[in-house]
Amino acid sequence: MFEARLTQSAILKKVLDAVKDLLSEATFECSDSGIQVQAMDNAHVSLVSLNLRSDGFDKYRCDRNLSMGMSISCMSKILRCAGAEDTVTLRAWDSPESIVFIFESPNKDKLAEYEMKLINMDQEHLGIPETSYSCVVKMPSAEFTRICRDLSQFGESITFACTKEGIKFSASGDYGSANIKLAQTADADNEEEAIIVNMQEPVKLTFSCRYLNCFVKAGPLCNQVQLSMSDDVPLVCEYKIGDIGHIRYYLAPKIDD
């Protein structure tokens, strides 16, 4: 039997909001250690890696490893039915053909159950290599969201240039150009507002706005986002999910064909 319970269904709602624009369906790998999703978008330009640790759940039981193929749009519709304060429980039996979402109101006077059919999916086992990055930048997620949104007006891509002083985002197109420089914060008294740059080598990489604007949908999950960059390897854009796990987006830099 598989059962995972979260007191705050809002977390799962936000997780779905953060992946539904990139993935139409995905395999949820459930084991004793937690729930993991690794899936590429249809165009094979980005990869989503979601990790929810079992110890982050309020109740977690997984008797045997399960691979459950789920429609992300259907799951998203079901989670929209949960009240903001509801508790959510995911439940499936061994060799399941469906998964049940149970929403319980805080005073336990309302109990709603939604059953979703699982889908058969081709298993894509991806290996994410260990990489030491030339630059790792931590910054407020709201700032990153705003920069991606603002610069998207000027072109289809944004160039990230990182030095030890800070990071510069720039875009150019038919209407003109724009660039935004963020300096490393001198004193990180307020952790949520801090901009921290760890640089081994300066990097300059260009990424598609379309994908960046999908990644920033994870902004409501965490006040800070971490960007890890090296030449010729995918950008990693990471948001922590409270004490329960993280979502990482990988995006290949634009390379002139």
Binding site: M40, A43, H44, V45, S46, L47, E124, H125, L126, G127, I128, P129, D232, V233, P234, Y250, A252, P253, K254, I255, D256, D257
Partner: peptide, 14 residues
């Protein structure tokens, strides 16, 4: 495209 190839190569299938 090269970007797709880069990603496919980077996440080599196990």
């Amino acid at each position: 495209k090269k970007s797709q190839k880069l990603l496919d190569t980077y996440f080599k299938t196990k």
